[in-house]
Design a binder for these strands. Structure first.
Lengths: 222, 222
DNA sequence: ACCTGAACACCGTTCAAGT
DNA sequence: ACCTGAACACCGTTCAAGT
């Protein structure tokens, strides 16, 4: 327990509530019952305290969520990085995707803070560095990184939504069901694809990432 | 007022509440005060009724939101479509982006229902059709559409988040501020970019879309 | 069929007070 | 400095009853 020499604190009252315990409780609730189950009151009960005591350790609910996320970036071991810049970008992007797929509830939080957890920065570094090695300018490389990140994020959001929908027995019918006959003329492709539509929605993320990365790298000043 | 011959309804009580008025009220609230201000109670007050009366016309709050979205797809005139499949995809994707940028609050709702508003389907049709014309197989074309859509979605989410952050005076400091000296070795690129980082975050959506589309079309079996 | 009132089971957060 | 209790100002939704 030598995690940073406690700096002699005695003035004031001894702390009853451990910030670590608060975060741990929050993480447990989320893991077991989903983000929607997380409330300040619920966390307080879990740690045997009152809702308001928590506000002494975290600014608000958002900050608690952000703290809960920290460390999730280590859930998977870092993948070995290939030589070629192109493959390196694809590998890291796929890793980012795999990492976040395990904790889909962070997506809501992430949007407020970007992926700037200290443990996650190596991914941005690696992608940007590889993009430059692949021939992009600095600004282009940053834009490429953001494009990849936005795509990964969008993919994950819809992935999670699809799973939620699948779990929900009486979900609203969507697209193919709502096509009428008059639509057929205006929407021939969609009409033709209607019965195969559902099965076609899933793609291989690495395949799509590869296409995106190739497109981005094709902008290199050659 | 000949919008679909009222089908002689008399049995039961005459309706006091107009479904159209409910949706209109919801839209007004959202436009003026943001999605977060929308509540069933608030809408009820606006139309001079009780919260529970609303449940007679919409299944739940989600459905009300979805209804509010319908029609937003017509906010912008359809752009003229270029000849080349590639340019057609880019044009339509950019239109999709521009459309949704005006109503960022729909993003939350959209994830539950996909972009399947009747008025929005022509965009999917057009992109998929163009992708096939560009040489992709049917399934590839659908995947390309989804990839574009996920990217556009992710981009919009972060765009909205950045604006919210900019509006909030005391927002938490993120990435460049949190870099320490020891990070410099592990994260040389990010360190070097740190002071130019903020200014580099904005990209031209059409430029990035072009790269993505080119990447996707490069998968055509030639 | 359509609408109401009361109630259930919650929220996040502020504020004044206690130790 | 740290924690508590009560309160504020809300939520979405169910349920039983009214017209």
């Amino acid at each position: 327990m030598t995690e940073g020499e406690k700096k002699r604190r005695t003035p004031g009252r001894p702390r009853r509530l451990d910030p670590g315990a608060i975060v741990a409780a929050a993480r447990r609730i989320i893991d077991e019952e989903g983000v929607d189950a997380l409330s300040m009151r619920r966390v307080a009960k879990e740690v045997g305290s009152t809702p308001m005591a928590l506000y002494h350790h975290v600014r608000d609910k958002d900050e608690l969520l952000l703290l809960t996320l920290a460390g999730a970036s280590n859930a998977l071991p870092r993948p070995p990085l290939p030589e070629s810049p192109r493959d390196r970008i694809i590998t890291v992007a796929a890793h980012m995707h795999a990492l976040l797929e395990r904790v889909p509830w962070v997506l809501k939080v992430l949007v407020r803070g970007d992926l700037t957890d200290r443990q996650a920065l190596w991914m941005a570094e690696s992608i940007i560095d590889s993009a430059i090695a692949g021939g992009l300018g600095e600004e282009q490389a940053v834009h490429a990184y953001r494009t990849i990140w936005h795509f990964v994020y969008g993919d994950l959001i819809f992935r999670a939504a699809r799973e939620r929908r699948a779990a929900d027995p009486d979900h609203r019918p969507s697209f193919p069901a709502t096509l009428t006959e008059e639509d057929a003329k205006e929407l021939p492709r969609l009409t033709a694809l209607a019965d195969r539509w559902e099965g076609m929605q899933r793609y291989d993320i690495v395949e799509q990432l590869t296409a995106v990365v190739d497109g981005l790298l094709s902008r290199a000043h050659r």
